[in-house]
Nucleic acid binder design. Structure first.
Lengths: 160, 160
DNA sequence: TGCAATTAAATTGTGTGCAATGTAATGTTC
DNA sequence: GAACATTACATTGCACACAATTTAATTGCA
């Protein structure tokens, strides 16, 4: 028998670590999916999916970014962004144009429609805030914790 | 001018709420994707994707569940699970069989291979724990917070 | 200058998520 | 007990994610 006391809740026991409800990864994964479901009806009114909304959020902050700059901001690659941006372009939300200085780059810029959509989007965070049933400080704390975790995971990935 | 002081960090300002880095949803979404990337090489050795791993975690806890019971546990529907389970079955990890009592139900049970895979999987949480560079209590706290948020979002979804 | 190495997007292929629909089995009601 | 509703799963279609590869433009360097 171990010198350390064993218990069902013991988080260092490999078997306990394997339980679904003890795993941060699953809490993260399932909560992220739940969040997307909350956004879905709100964004449907704007004609956007959740990843498309993220792209618009970035462009509303800074217009005229390249695909790779968008990707760095969102942690997504061209394989995800290229078709997504094409759909947004087809909807008339933005324009994609090869850069004149560097023909390899594609500059993504908002259309008038896309820029105007920001006004409609201003109501979205409030509605989500309400759905979370959390206070602003609670949300800020959790956001900061997740950003820190994301950074640590990113660093771990580099070492791989 | 408002009676309340305005500042760039003001979280009640609709424009500030729309900033990408102020949004919990994006922290959640991007961190969940980063977590999946950390799992990827670890699970590749087991021949599993991350959602497939989640199914195996559930079955290692309780074998012989129906598709809908698996779905309730993982917050996924049959449109996601059916093809995923078929792939796991094709890999020889599990068996799918119509229930004798109720022919509408499909019982999912581990194969010997699938049950044996648990031994290999025991090392996975440790490796992820290491990648997070967090202490166990930190992870437990964040997991509990996320589970609470998931519950609140689930309740908000019912009201829709 | 010439050309290999690098870089930026796009493309391809696989595997989810999920809404909407289909199908077959089971319950329910009169 | 026959018609109808409900349930459980499967299927279809669309939109991500992302690894791997391709294509085209730029850079670096001998």
């Amino acid at each position: 028998m171990n010198s350390r006391a064993a218990s069902p809740a013991d988080q260092l026991d490999p078997a306990a670590l394997l339980k679904l409800d003890n795993q941060l990864c699953f809490a993260l994964y399932s909560t992220s999916l739940a969040m997307t479901k909350v956004y879905k009806p709100l964004l449907a009114r704007l004609g956007l999916t959740y990843p498309q909304y993220l792209v618009m959020l970035v462009l509303w902050e800074q217009d005229g970014l390249t695909v790779s700059a968008l990707g760095e901001r969102l942690f997504l690659d061209s394989g995800t962004l290229t078709p997504l941006l094409k759909r947004l372009e087809a909807q008339g939300m933005l324009l994609r144009a090869r850069s004149a200085e560097d023909e390899r780059q594609v500059i993504v810029s908002l259309s008038e429609t896309g820029r105007a959509l920001r006004e409609e989007a201003l109501a979205v965070p409030q509605a989500v805030l309400c759905a979370t049933a959390c206070t602003i400080p609670e949300l800020q704390t959790m956001t900061a914790e997740l950003q820190l975790l994301r950074r640590k995971l990113g660093e771990a990935l580099l070492k791989t």
